[in-house]
Design a protein around this nucleic acid. Structure first.
Lengths: 356, 356
DNA sequence: ACGGTTAGTCGAAACGCTTCGACAGCCGAG
DNA sequence: CTCGGCTGTCGAAGCGTTTCGACTAACCGT
């Protein structure tokens, strides 16, 4: 394995000159640069990452910390990762994904000066990783938000706007009775950001239309989805549309609809939030969904982090990106309107006054 | 940030002694060791990974190279990753996941001496990454197999046994007309290992039971699944069971069965191969599946790699693990038997003679 | 003609660790 | 006893970079 010394000797220059050619830290004449470059290719020289890291105190590695539960990574998270990796690679950094969940592991990784910076996925409202990394002095960008974001950089989905667009889409199709299926009650109680924010946004959006916001929590599983749909039909038997913020429950919901003889979208329209096209296409009919800006989130997070790492930016980077509405086969105009005119089989019991 | 010098000074020993305490490369008296350890905790000392790597020519990092397509990681791959990470962590190594797909990127990573070894996921029959890493002199363990495995270490699923068990399960339930839905024809043609191996195993298993092996390729998508099921019903209208080796097509298959009024498992039994419990539970009814030994695969691969890295093992490690049959709601005894006795609504046209 | 920049290069000192050779003391075998 | 071989410790030489200070030569405005 060739070293800088070998290159320098072959090019008949000093080692530091070779280094300057590589890093551009000082000007080098074109003639010298060419000689050095030629020597490098002749020797197949590759700088030693460890030596470089030791001398420069920068590893040129940024970590993408993603807790991996059994569920696996959805297409959304994957897009995020590839976006981040591309951005890092473009800037000459390596992006390593670390599945560390163990806090000690993380602390070790950080204090061994192995990471120039870190992007945190799946941030909780109270996230011990954040303080651990801050204490270790590792620059940080979050995907999602902690409760208190002062002094932190983050990129997150604009849940407000996303929910509003989804509701507008359904209302525009004539739906009035829309049920929101969220994550589990436990997740909401512990303050899981997306669950809480979308809940609030749903209430705002619905009341803005003069409609009652009916909301049902659901476990993150097919069974949870089935139970949630049953609960939804109990609470709002006249529902004509379901807005789902739970990628794991959605198939259960669809299955239960089918079981009950309800046809999507004829009887019930379904919109899935923060869903990837791939998952949306798995359903039959394919789901109308709010597609998350996965790869853009990843790219932006890494770019912000690198600015911070390279000292170019001291201010916090805080940014929200909306999801895009993609209409597929699971939504259609509300059959309800016609029914309201001609029929009476709508059970209005149990619904509060609209506009509350 | 404290260095070894600080620790040595505080403990009144030499730097090398501190190093020996840390690495155990030479014996150190208990008294000295205690002094050093005390100094370390007092200073909150953490070794600098870069310096250590430079001096020892070992990064204590192993890479898990996983191409990330848009589809994301299933629960199977995730289990694999966590298994591998746990094994690495237990051995004092860091496992970094690299989404690099670009060969130059990979070569750079390898020749910068940043990786002590690598585990390759999603190995193709002809995989350029293998030769690239071999040329860079990076120890290697594959998940899956290349066409020619001489001189290579790998861990893979025992497709033969897995298919045999699945077929036995169905045959044991009285099914005679079983269709195998594989990956796409293109994947098979390019020699994608799992597709080819399961195909061959299916033929063997079926003919061993005196049954005709009917096989249908499917694109890796819901639409592909629907098309495949349609094709299957054309080719074998009397089918009573479907064996699916395509996690992405399975929902399309189930959807198309429903569309055609066929009820699972009453009319058609479905077994999904190499599927995680999580995905199996998404379906309604939950899928009987051959569950892949994900985390064991990961652990074994890393352990084999580390033995190779640490020079303890020169011989290749080649090992196959079977998937476990988990019976859920998508399989039941063949209704066919009863029907054949009492009814006649089976369209027998187009089916070849059994046992060919 | 003169100090003051600037471009281009060099040598050497870090960076924080591992590891080798050396050596002192001590034990048991010959 | 004496020699070879352990045990425990030290000092110093790397590992392959970056980076700092210094130096030369050319170039600027005056």
């Amino acid at each position: 394995m060739a070293t800088m010394h070998d290159v320098a000797r072959l090019a008949r220059v000093s080692v530091s000159t070779v280094s300057y050619v590589l890093t551009g830290a000082r000007p080098i004449s074109q003639a010298t640069r060419d000689k050095v470059l030629a020597a490098m290719t002749e020797l197949g020289y590759q700088p030693n990452a460890m030596a470089r890291g030791l001398a420069s105190r920068r590893s040129r590695i940024i970590g993408l910390l993603m807790p991996m539960d059994e569920r696996g990574l959805g297409a959304t998270e994957t897009a995020f990762v590839t976006g981040a990796a591309a951005a890092a690679s473009a800037a000459g950094y390596h992006l390593v994904l670390s599945p560390v969940c163990d806090l000690d592991d993380l602390r070790r990784l950080a204090s061994q000066r192995m990471l120039d910076g870190a992007v945190l996925m799946e941030v909780q409202v109270e996230d011990a990783r954040v303080t651990a990394l801050q204490e270790a002095g590792v620059p940080l960008v979050l995907i999602g938000r902690t409760g208190d974001t002062t002094g932190l950089s983050y990129v997150d989905i604009d849940f407000d706007q996303t929910v509003r667009e989804a509701v507008d889409h359904l209302v525009g199709l004539g739906h009035r009775r829309i049920v929101y299926v969220n994550h589990s009650a436990a997740a909401i109680a512990t303050g899981y950001g997306p669950a809480v924010r979308t809940r609030d946004a749903f209430v705002t959006a619905m009341t803005g239309h003069g409609l009652e916001p009916v909301m049902i929590p659901a476990q993150d599983s097919a069974a949870g989805g089935r139970a949630a749909l049953a609960a939804a039909l109990t609470e709002a038997p006249d529902l004509s549309a379901v807005l789902v913020m739970n990628e794991n429950a959605i198939f259960g919901i669809l299955g239960e609809l089918t079981n009950r003889g309800l046809v999507v979208p004829h009887d019930v329209s379904v919109v899935s939030m923060v869903t990837s096209p791939q998952v949306a296409e798995l359903a039959n009919p394919a789901l109308t969904a709010m597609t998350s800006p996965g790869s853009a989130l990843g790219r932006i997070a890494v770019e912000a982090l690198l600015r911070q790492v390279e000292g170019a930016e001291s201010a916090d980077h805080q940014q929200l990106l909306p999801c895009a509405l993609e209409v597929r086969g699971s939504t259609s105009p509300a059959a309800r309107e016609a029914v309201v005119i001609g029929g009476d089989h709508i059970d209005q019991t149990g619904s509060g006054p609209p506009g509350m």
